[in-house]
């Protein structure tokens, strides 16, 4: 079980970094979303192999239960990641309105001062 997760986490991080290094706003945004997902998956993988265990709800059944703490942490992380994504969307939109570009490489350049 964990080997697939490990490979998947690696792939998610690789893809997100690859996208983040682009100059297009769209790619950067997608990279950020993927990065959030990658981190969440990374955290949940800390709860160990879930095979043969049941969800952390006490009412039903018997047998070993998965560790609830990573789940609580990831739940928080998902929500905060969502908040940050929304903020990033608004920020990119505002920069687009101001700078009339969706290319990060065209922002903040010293040449821009001379215009």
């Amino acid at each position: 079980m964990q080997i697939e997760t490990a490979l998947l986490v690696g792939l998610l991080f690789a893809v997100s970094v690859y996208l983040l290094l682009h100059k297009s706003f769209v790619r950067i945004l997608f990279g950020f979303v993927t990065l959030t997902n990658a981190t969440n998956l990374f955290l949940i993988s800390m709860s160990g192999d879930p095979d043969g265990k049941r969800a952390p709800i006490l009412a039903e059944g018997s047998g070993p239960i998965v560790d609830p703490l990573p789940q609580a942490l990831v739940l928080t992380a998902i929500v905060i990641g969502f908040g940050l994504t929304i903020y990033l969307i608004m920020l990119l939109y505002r920069i687009f309105l101001d700078a009339k570009t969706t290319d990060a490489s065209k922002l903040f350049l010293p040449e821009a001062d001379d215009e």
Partner: peptide, 30 residues
């Protein structure tokens, strides 16, 4: 660069999987 990051993160997951704390707090919450 991104491939490197991916490899390192995969390694970290595998590493963390084999080293768990002897006295985890999760079961106590349960």
């Amino acid at each position: 660069l991104s491939g490197g990051v991916g490899l390192v993160m995969t390694g970290l997951v595998l590493f963390a999987d084999r080293h768990s704390h002897p006295d985890p707090i999760g079961p106590k919450y349960l």
